[in-house]
C-alpha cells in the first residue's frame, strides 16, 4: 500500500514545489501581470531581505504576543466556564440558547467596538482574539464534560471521591481530548484574528506591515509577509498536534490498538 502511494512527506513536498514553480512561471510567461503577482524568486528575495531587518522581527513578536496572550485568556476562560456550566445541568440549559446566539457573531463585527474601547492598542487585538477563540474552547469543553462515562463517575462516587476529586480525576481527563481540540481550533482562529486586527485597525504586527507594504507598492514584500503568516499558522498547528499526541498517549484516538 505505502509503496504504491509513495512517501506522503515526499508527495506533500512535491505539491508545494509545484505551487512554487507555478507562481514562478505564471508571471514570467506573461499570463498574469507581475506587478500584482511577482514570481516566487522575487518574493523569496524580498523575504530574505525582510528576515534581516529588526522591524520584521518586531512585527512577528507583536503578532505572536497578541496571539499568545489572547489565546491564553480565551483558553483559561473557556475551560473554567465550560467545566462550571457543563457540570451544572441547570446552568447548561439556561445558557445554551445564549451561547448559540453569541457564538456565530463574527469577531470582525466587533472591530468598531474594539477601536472605540482601545484605539490601536494591544487591547483591540486581544478583544477580537479572545472573543473568537473563547467560543471554540467553550463549545469543546462542554462536549467533553458531557462525555463523562457514568460508570467511571459512579466508580468515583462509590469510593467516596469528593466533588473536587471527581472534577480532577474523572471529568478533567475525560474532557482533556476535547480541550486540546478546542485549543488547536482556537489557536488557528486567534492567529487569523490577530492579523486581521492589525490589518484593519492598524495595531502593530505583521498585519500592519502587510498593509504598509501594500500601500507603498512593495508587492513582493507583501507576498513575503503573507507567506510568513501562513508559515506561523502551520507551525502553530504542528506544535499543537505534537503536544496533543504526547499528552494523550492513553486515549483511544492516539494509542495503537492492542489485541486482547
Amino acid at each position: 500500500m505505502t509503496k504504491r502511494l509513495g512517501n506522503p512527506v515526499l508527495l506533500g513536498l512535491a505539491g508545494l514545489a509545484g505551487l512554487l514553480l507555478l507562481v514562478e512561471a505564471l508571471p514570467r510567461l506573461g499570463l498574469v501581470n507581475d506587478a500584482y503577482l511577482p514570481p516566487t524568486s522575487r518574493i523569496a528575495t524580498a523575504l530574505f531581505d525582510e528576515l534581516a531587518t529588526a522591524e520584521f522581527w518586531r512585527a512577528v513578536g507583536d503578532t505572536l504576543t497578541g496571539w499568545a496572550i489572547g489565546l491564553a485568556i480565551a483558553v483559561t476562560a473557556g475551560v473554567v466556564v465550560g467545566i462550571v456550566v457543563g457540570a451544572i445541568p441547570v446552568l447548561r440549559a439556561a445558557t445554551a440558547s445564549t451561547v448559540e446566539f453569541l457564538r456565530p457573531i463574527p469577531s470582525v463585527a466587533l472591530i468598531p467596538l474594539a477601536v472605540l474601547l482601545y484605539g490601536t492598542d494591544l487591547g483591540s487585538v486581544l478583544l477580537l482574539v479572545v472573543y473568537a477563540a473563547f467560543w471554540q474552547v467553550l463549545v469543546q469543553v462542554l462536549y467533553g464534560v458531557a462525555d463523562v462515562d457514568p460508570v467511571a463517575d459512579e466508580t468515583a462516587r462509590s469510593f467516596r471521591f469528593g466533588t473536587w476529586a471527581r472534577v480532577r480525576h474523572v471529568l478533567w481527563p475525560t474532557a482533556l481530548p476535547y480541550v486540546f481540540t478546542g485549543v488547536r481550533l482556537a489557536a488557528s482562529v486567534a492567529l487569523v484574528l490577530a492579523v486581521t486586527a492589525e490589518l484593519v485597525i492598524g495595531a502593530p504586527g505583521l498585519g500592519k506591515s502587510i498593509a504598509v507594504a501594500q500601500s507603498s507598492g512593495a508587492v513582493p514584500v507583501m507576498y513575503a509577509l503573507v507567506a510568513v503568516t501562513g508559515l506561523l499558522g502551520v507551525a502553530i498547528n504542528l506544535a499543537a498536534r505534537v503536544f496533543e499526541r504526547r499528552t494523550l498517549a492513553w486515549h483511544q484516538s492516539v494509542r495503537g490498538e492492542i489485541p486482547a
Partner: peptide, 9 residues
Amino acid sequence: EYGRSLFPW
C-alpha cells in the same frame, strides 16, 4: 463494565 470503571488515563 470493567473497561469503563477503570480509568484509561
